[in-house]
Each structure stands twice: as structure tokens, then as C-alpha cells.
């Protein structure tokens, strides 16, 4: 078998995940845009109250997880398309994963300490 450690895994699951996470983010974007345009989140207090709302907090967490999963697939595809040496590519894959996991933790802490 000629398996490549950074191969594509033939991607149907990733293809689907990319779409599901995109829809979650798009819906949440519309909700936030509506809140901002309505002026409800214009002040510092209003903004904190909006993000601190239980439902928004829940959806914002889903947004963060979706964003990081979506970015993982997208950025990994960029490395797969343009970076050929296996050692460099796998290093970039790991670094991408590590920063995204870190971002997810950081952003969740920002949202959930409200």
C-alpha cells in the first residue's frame, strides 16, 4: 500500500462538515448583524448584554467551534495544494491545528466569562 501520511482521506466527511459549519456561521452572522443594525448592541453595556444572553452565548460557542473546524479544513486544503514536501506539510498541518484549538479555547473563555 502506498499510503501518504498527509493524504486527502478522500474528503466526503470534510466536504459535508465544511458546508454544515458554513451554514451555522452564516445564520449566526445574520443574527449578529441584525442586532448591531438595530442599535441594540451599540453601547458597551448593550453589547455585553447581547453576547451574555443565554441563547446568543450558546450560538456564539457553536460559531467558534464551526469557525475553527471550517478554518482547519480550508487551511489544510491550501497546504495540501501548494506544499509538497511531506515534512513541511505535516508540520504546517500540526501548527494549524494547534493554533486553531488554542483560538477555540481563547474565544470560548472570552464568551463564557461574561
Amino acid at each position: 500500500m502506498n499510503r501518504i501520511v498527509v493524504g486527502a482521506h478522500y474528503g466526503l466527511k470534510d466536504w459535508l462538515a465544511q458546508r454544515i459549519t458554513a451554514i451555522i456561521m452564516a445564520v449566526f452572522t445574520v443574527i449578529v448583524a441584525a442586532a448591531v443594525l438595530s442599535g441594540a448592541a451599540a453601547s458597551h453595556e448593550g453589547w455585553r448584554a447581547f453576547v451574555g444572553n443565554g441563547l446568543i452565548r450558546f450560538l456564539a460557542f457553536l460559531f467558534v467551534v464551526s469557525l475553527c473546524y471550517h478554518a482547519w479544513i480550508g487551511v489544510r486544503d491550501i497546504w495540501m495544494d501548494y506544499v509538497k514536501p511531506t515534512a513541511v506539510r505535516v508540520t504546517l498541518h500540526v501548527l494549524t491545528l494547534l493554533v486553531l484549538v488554542g483560538y477555540a479555547g481563547w474565544a470560548t473563555q472570552v464568551l463564557w466569562r461574561l
Partner: peptide, 20 residues
């Protein structure tokens, strides 16, 4: 655009943190 957003994520999360 996706690559640019990925690269600037730390700035965006930091701004979110400050704003909240």
C-alpha cells in the same frame, strides 16, 4: 479571503475580548 481571515483571527479574538 479565507486565508486572510485565518491569519488575522488572533487580532479579531483580541478585539472581541477587549470589547466585552
Amino acid at each position: 479571503s479565507g486565508a486572510g481571515l485565518f491569519l488575522m483571527l488572533p487580532l479579531l479574538i483580541w478585539l472581541l475580548e477587549l470589547s466585552l
